[in-house]
Write a protein that binds this DNA or RNA. Structure first.
Lengths: 192, 192
DNA sequence: ACCTGAACACCGTTCAAGT
DNA sequence: ACCTGAACACCGTTCAAGT
């Protein structure tokens, strides 16, 4: 990779971080303008908007990935999953574009070529697997399922400030995903 | 309302039904073209895309609304809610644009001026209220909450043919919304 | 009172022309 | 090898001019 290309890449990421943080015009063109590069350059470095967004929030993604073994080492599987999902939700609350990218990519992972999404999915897969082994998640549930169900929670927080509602919905989801330990006599699937 | 205006309205609805059924170009312009009217005319009759879509599927909406008392008359609250939601999902599966409109409007009901959405919300509110009175739904849950959580299920079916996955996710949601009758000793909220 | 359709202000994406 | 930015093909929306 040539040095000017490398430099442009960094400038794009910087400009993107600024533009995405400020609400308002978040078009790819405005990012290119702010970075002082042509639209073609931006498009070549990042083949899709989602690819760019995941790179911009690369640190947050890394943090989520490395947190998995720590959480699993110190907490029971069910709680580890819960804490990790809360952290994921917080990232989406801080950076609405991250939430948007997650929703889009979860809906159609194959179409957007975002390899930065794969580690996140892998991290969640580990948590799901451990929970399945422990019998603390409804069997058959995949990481994609969890992300799909989580999607609406980001949209609620992006609009208004009703954090209470978001928490309530999260509890509802978790109750569905991880049949409560107090209901051991119902082996998941015996509901009328 | 003048007779030609009334006629145009009907022609738009007919053309919209055809265009929305066929996959491909579903732009408002293509609907206006097919109906043989100007874009301005379409836009005046239906102030938003969602308003048009809800009118096109008005019969389905009516069917859902009138089904509520029938279901509540013949089934226990929990099952009535379940059957109604399954029917709602089926409508979205048959008409992807209906599903899209639901997701959009549920995310920001105030912004899109769609009065055709209100009866649907009212119907579901009735079901939720009856379930809350019967103690068969997690307290504090609103009709908007249910629709919000239901959103992702439409997107999964629109893409691929994995009906099994959709069913699985639906069971998960319902488990979260309606804490199982087999776990009566856990009064909703005692999870670790 | 209602309709028309050109015109406007945006997207994302591409690609010939440059360095 | 990489960059530029005009150009393209689309959106939805508006509004002066017509009937």
């Amino acid at each position: 990779m040539r040095s000017d290309a490398r430099c442009n890449r960094l400038r794009i990421l910087e400009a993107a971080a600024e533009v995405l943080a400020a609400s308002g015009d978040v078009s790819l063109k405005s990012i290119a303008r702010r970075a002082g590069v042509g639209q073609g350059t931006l498009y070549r470095h990042f083949p899709s908007r989602e690819a760019l967004v995941f790179q911009v929030y690369g640190e947050e993604v890394d943090g989520l990935v490395t947190a998995v073994p720590v959480l699993l080492g110190g907490l029971p599987p069910r709680l580890a999953l819960r804490v990790w999902l809360e952290r994921l939700l917080d990232v989406g609350r801080c950076f609405p574009e991250f939430a948007n990218a997650m929703s889009l990519v979860t809906g159609a992972p194959a179409e957007h070529c975002v390899e930065a999404y794969r580690p996140l999915l892998g991290a969640l897969s580990t948590l799901v697997s451990v929970n399945e082994a422990a019998g603390t998640i409804s069997s058959g549930t995949t990481a994609e399922d969890v992300l799909l169900l989580l999607g609406p929670l980001w949209h609620v927080e992006a609009r208004a400030e009703d954090r209470a509602r978001s928490d309530r919905l999260f509890e509802t989801l978790l109750r569905g995903l991880c049949p409560s330990a107090t209901a051991r006599e119902a082996p998941a699937g015996a509901a009328p």
